[in-house]
Amino acid sequence: MLTILDQVSLQVSHGERIAIIGASGAGKSTLLGLLAGLDLPTSGRVWLSGRELTALDEDGRAALRADEVGFVFQSFHLIPSLTALENVMLPLELTHHEQPLQAATQALENVGLGDRAGHYPRQLSGGEKQRVAIARAYVTQPSVLFADEPTGNLDQQTGETIIEILFNMNREYGTTLVLVSHDLGLAQRCDRIIRMEAGQIRSSTEQSAEKPS
């Protein structure tokens, strides 16, 4: 059997921003998947917002995600057959939000894409796609936001814009942020940096304050 994560112990406080960094194959994404309840460890336990994820079944974890969690991915994961606005509306519709249209429109405007609402993902640039994804992640006002290499597919300048938006939203909503990246500059803007190597946490460094970008 292949051991991907080993002896990992990690606690993230409410409102904290942490960055998980490490080389490819270090187990960053696997750790993120476990923290978000997307996957289960073969042994060990995971809690999210006071509830033990590892004790919940697939549907229980899904319900918890719907209430508490937002995601931003490296490859955006927008649904190609839905417009930007419809993509943002989707989580609201799933949680039976009363006014998904207004909330989603507002969320798109917050990321500066109010005028691209009717466009399909294929008509958007990479940065725009990620902004739609951020709008979708924040539109339900989750208590935790997981971001998996959010700038990995973007050029530096676009990446910085995206980070700016991500952190602004984090401040505005007081969301806990768990970020996976191998961009040290990005990591240094978080409260804590978790460095991973060969499936283990090598170091956990507290940052004094957010550095200007």
Binding site: A36, A62, H77, I79, L90, T95
Partner: peptide, 18 residues
């Protein structure tokens, strides 16, 4: 085939299997 990603995403957004 084209909708596997959508299903994964819906689940990620908290939709349950049933």
């Amino acid at each position: 085939l084209r909708h596997r990603d959508r299903i994964a995403l819906l689940k990620c957004l908290g939709s349950q299997q049933p």
